[in-house]
Design a protein around this nucleic acid. Sequence first.
DNA 1: TCAAACCATGCAGTATACTGTATACTTGTT
DNA 2: AACAAGTATACAGTATACTGCATGGTTTGA
Lengths: 121, 121
Amino acid sequence: MKLISQLSKETGVPIGTIRFYEKTGLFSGETKKEITTNKYVYYGDDVVEKLRFIQMAKAVGFTLSEIKEVIDVWYKKEFSKKAKIEVLNRKLSEIDEKMRELKAVKKQIALCKFNIENGIG
Amino acid sequence: MKLISQLSKETGVPIGTIRFYEKTGLFSGETKKEITTNKYVYYGDDVVEKLRFIQMAKAVGFTLSEIKEVIDVWYKKEFSKKAKIEVLNRKLSEIDEKMRELKAVKKQIALCKFNIENGIG
DNA sequence: TCAAACCATGCAGTATACTGTATACTTGTT
DNA sequence: AACAAGTATACAGTATACTGCATGGTTTGA
């Protein structure tokens, strides 16, 4: 269990961003009930895992609300098995679509490079 | 050569968005000099090509300014061959990085799905 | 000819995702 | 005890990428 600055160092995500994510419901830390003098929040390894997932998903164009959808079915229990599988299957096909788009962009750039290297265009 | 509403229909990009992109320098249409009664702007197939590229690149997480970088070396001549190749190589490795992240996200979601299907977690 | 549809310009407003600032309390070190 | 460093809360501000609206001119079809 780590405090927010430690979590920030471990993941590279700024403290302000971590607080913002927590406020939007992407994850939550916990306060130790045995400590009554402060309101310090502790984060477990599940939060590290979620932050890494968020960073990767954001890098490939998913929005925070799209990411939240996955995290919700992943960690929460208030969804039926059927509903969870449906969400995940939808995400998997969105990923396949992104894979195709990424390949198309790569192809376009590679062609552009080829043309420049060979003095065409 | 088509007017903006035709371009919008062909690409699925809203007229307002097309104007916004043009204003940010991602591409430009042309006014017919022989017509003096209006200021209508005409777009060629290169703009259609660019719009499709922009849509795909955006879908995989590139920002408009990152996309503009590529379009600039792609269509403009005020860069040395060396500078162009350098930009394109950088983009290609960014794409490979996104490819890795996309695969990691897919793996994570597939695992999550497996666990739910088998009643684990 | 005249209304509906289309075009251009400018500028305000919105959504998303942060980022910074101010205030105040807690902890650790000297 | 004092002071730096860490933590929490709240709220304002910023950057990016649109989106909508008001205004006014142009084209086209009945």
